[in-house]
Design a protein around this nucleic acid. Structure first.
Lengths: 110, 110
DNA sequence: CTGACGTATCAATGCATGTTTATATGTCAT
DNA sequence: ATGACATATAAACATGCATTGATACGTCAG
């Protein structure tokens, strides 16, 4: 029973957008990969086995939503998780999933 | 730079699913509404101005993903957030959004 | 300036999913 | 059992979006 600070419709929309962006496995992998330190677009594409345009597209979405931050360095653009809240939240939930892999079929109807 | 406990593909998928479910504004409203205490399907539909089948459909998804927990009581089925991690995570990010509503257009390209 | 490299954009496609309408299942009173 | 209420399911429709392939933009070396 946690108290929520009564969001405006705009804030709710932003919050949902953040969750929605993290809801795609490809994007989630990208974000989590950027949590280990700054990564260039090409490095992400290579290390995760994704096409470069796809990575760039997702990075644009994540950057626009301020989940990732871009820094240009010579010809490369390095991406980092922009906010500690984001990293912590993902890490917490990831840990929670990692320990609680009882994984019994979750389809019990009341 | 937060460390992630190296998820398996299954765990990654589950994590992304959780985020994806929270990524829909309607579902997010439902979940946040259930954080104030147990709510029946009809109450949720009425108080959030949604159709009953739509609420039931979303509740099914949230229940299957173990984000919400259902308890039958007479003719009513009450839904609650099943895990403290979930509530805390949403509350934290909601607070983070609520304070950081500078809301300048986030489209600065490097 | 020209070429090579890294990144970003664009158009097209195919699949996933949120919503509605109608109907079924289940539970309690009389 | 019958009727009323609460919830769940099904089919149909519409929309959104992830992915690909081709191409354009920007940056540095020679």
């Amino acid at each position: 029973m946690t108290v929520i600070p009564a969001l405006t419709p705009d804030q709710l929309s932003l919050l949902a957008d953040a969750f929605r962006l993290l809801g795609d496995p490809t994007r989630l992998r990208i974000v989590m990969h950027c949590m280990d330190g700054p990564r260039s677009v090409g490095a992400i594409a290579c290390e995760l086995g994704l096409s470069q345009p796809l990575v760039s597209h997702h990075l644009r979405l994540l950057r626009t939503a301020r989940l990732l931050r871009a820094v240009r360095q010579a010809r490369h653009v390095f991406y980092t998780v922009s906010d500690h809240h984001i990293s912590h939240m993902i890490a917490d939930l990831a840990a929670h999933m990692a320990e609680k892999t009882t994984d019994q079929d979750a389809a019990q109807h009341p």
